[in-house]
């Protein structure tokens, strides 16, 4: 029998509105508190009966973390963009720092897939911190090699790579994400390819690529490939990246390398109407599409 005193209904009693990072993480200390950003994913958890023990909602809108700007020290080689964790999808897509720039083309593609009602409130921070593999945006951010600035009680402000975040997102459960940083260099471009059952909706499988071409040789200088909706958390395809690095991005090479990818991914999770076998079959195709698109974009620059 269940504990009768335990309240099984989502029934928070307090909304806390910290005005400093320090205050915010203090509130996160107890097990019954939860950060609320755009709330588009939080309340669905609540309705699925997964937040019964949450009593305090932590509103982070007073923390001044909605912004998008260029980092102050910029080299001509690398341009860094800083996006506050509370920035909405809509604010990102309408920013001139993102728009029309091939290095962020994938980002825009991912953001535009969700409906306006989501874009207007969902935040980049909430999207990452949900730590699921079927949201679009984190897949591209992963491919862009984003650096995440967290604030925790122990360490204060600190930077980690998105790679290490996705290795074990649970580690950051009680930290506050403040900022996402990503940089671009000339000759680089990104892309995002998503397969859904309908033309909108959650992905059955998706891939994002970021590619930097060597200015003179036009070989692949650097490449990051990430897949989503295939495994439990988003995954990088290091082996495929390795094989393509310093190669000439001909369609034959790309296709050949992509075909190997299916065997490199394990623990593929089936979705409704898409078995593991199907996902395996389409993975190389999506990957090829993502890479060739990114290469095309980088070449056009």
């Amino acid at each position: 029998m269940r504990d009768l005193e335990l309240n099984m209904v989502f029934d928070p009693s307090e909304v806390l509105r910290p005005s400093s990072f320090q205050d915010a993480v203090e509130t996160l200390d107890s097990s019954d508190s939860k950060i609320v950003a755009g709330n588009t994913s939080l309340y669905s958890l609540a309705r699925k009966g997964r937040l019964e023990n949450i009593k305090k909602l932590v509103d982070i809108s007073k923390l001044g973390i909605s912004y998008i700007k260029e980092a102050e020290s910029q080299t001509s080689e690398e341009k860094k963009i800083l996006v506050g964790a509370g920035t909405t999808f809509q604010e990102i897509t309408s920013s001139s720092l993102i728009n029309g720039r091939p290095e962020y083309a994938g980002l825009k593609e991912a953001l535009n897939k969700s409906p306006p009602q989501i874009r207007n409130v969902a935040t980049i921070g909430g999207s990452i911190c949900s730590a699921v593999s079927f949201y679009d945006l984190p897949i591209v951010l992963f491919a862009l090699g984003t650096t995440l600035k967290f604030f925790s009680k122990k360490e204060g402000e600190h930077l980690i790579t998105i790679d290490s975040f996705f290795q074990n997102p649970a580690l950051y459960g009680k930290s506050l994400l403040i900022e996402c940083q990503f940089s671009s260099s000339p000759n680089s471009a990104s892309s995002f390819v998503k397969l859904c059952r309908r033309m909108s909706g959650y992905a059955v499988a998706m891939t994002a690529a970021r590619i930097k071409l060597d200015r003179t040789s036009r070989e692949i200088d650097d490449i990051r490939l990430v897949i989503g909706a295939m495994t439990k958390t988003p995954q990088r395809l290091n082996q495929v990246e390795e094989e393509l690095r310093h190669k000439e991005p001909s369609i034959e090479t790309i296709t050949r390398m992509c075909e190997k990818s299916a065997d490199l991914v394990h623990d593929i999770i089936p979705s409704v109407h898409a078995s593991t076998a199907y996902k395996k079959r389409v993975l190389p195709i999506l990957l090829r599409e993502a890479i060739t698109t990114a290469v095309e974009r980088a070449t056009e620059r």
Partner: peptide, 11 residues
């Protein structure tokens, strides 16, 4: 709605 998808305006 996420897993039982009826046609949207794009479909």
């Amino acid at each position: 709605l996420a897993d039982y998808e009826i046609p949207s305006i794009f479909d």
